[in-house]
Simulated scan of single mutants.
Amino acid sequence: MARIAGVNIPTNKRVEIGLRYIYGIGPSKAHSICKQLSIPDDRRVNQLSDDEILKIRELIDSEYQVEGDLRREVSMNIKRLVDLGCYRGLRHRRGLPVRGQRTHTNARTRKGKAVAIAGKKKVTR
């Protein structure tokens, strides 16, 4: 099992897919890494030599911000917004959608499970 940037890469997957297990590397970055190091598309992680794994590790360390450093930067950016008290910071603080989505319906991922309001009954005449 290859270990890159502190993450165990699954051995039976293609290299381009396996690199996506690293936080901060998506489809386009994984493809460009394979292109730069001239790794074939059909190569699996368990078929990589130690030299190729070392090259991938060095390239990621030098050119990309991944895992802990990236997570830290993202959380610091959110903390800065919250401390400023700007609109986006307030939305983060309250756990509501930040980018203008509607909240009258939906937004359950951010708001959590819906809570029923007790004692609300229809008025009958």
Rank of each mutant, 00 (worst) to 15 (best):
R3L: 15
I4D: 00
I4E: 01
A5E: 03
V7N: 02
N8K: 15
I9F: 13
P10E: 11
R14P: 10
R14D: 07
E16K: 10
I17S: 11
I17P: 01
G18Y: 00
R20K: 08
I22E: 05
Y23T: 04
G24N: 05
I25C: 09
I25V: 10
I25K: 05
P27S: 10
S28I: 15
K29W: 04
K29N: 04
K29A: 08
A30H: 10
H31G: 05
C34Q: 01
L37N: 06
L37P: 07
S38K: 06
D41V: 12
D41Q: 06
R43V: 05
R43Q: 02
R44Q: 03
R44Y: 02
V45Y: 00
Q47W: 09
Q47L: 14
D50H: 00
E52G: 01
L54D: 09
R57E: 15
E58V: 07
L59C: 03
I60L: 02
E63V: 04
E63W: 03
E63N: 10
E63H: 11
Y64A: 08
V66A: 09
E67V: 08
G68I: 07
G68M: 07
D69M: 04
D69I: 08
R71F: 03
R71H: 13
R72K: 07
R72G: 08
E73L: 14
V74I: 15
S75H: 14
M76S: 09
N77P: 02
L81E: 03
L81G: 03
V82D: 04
D83R: 13
L84N: 02
G85L: 00
G85S: 02
C86R: 07
Y87M: 13
Y87D: 05
R88S: 06
R94K: 15
G95H: 00
G95K: 00
Q101K: 11
H104V: 06
T109N: 04
R110H: 12
K113T: 14
K113H: 09
A114N: 10
V115Y: 09
A116W: 06
A116N: 08
I117D: 02
I117N: 04
I117L: 09
A118V: 15
G119P: 09
G119R: 13
K121E: 15
K122H: 15
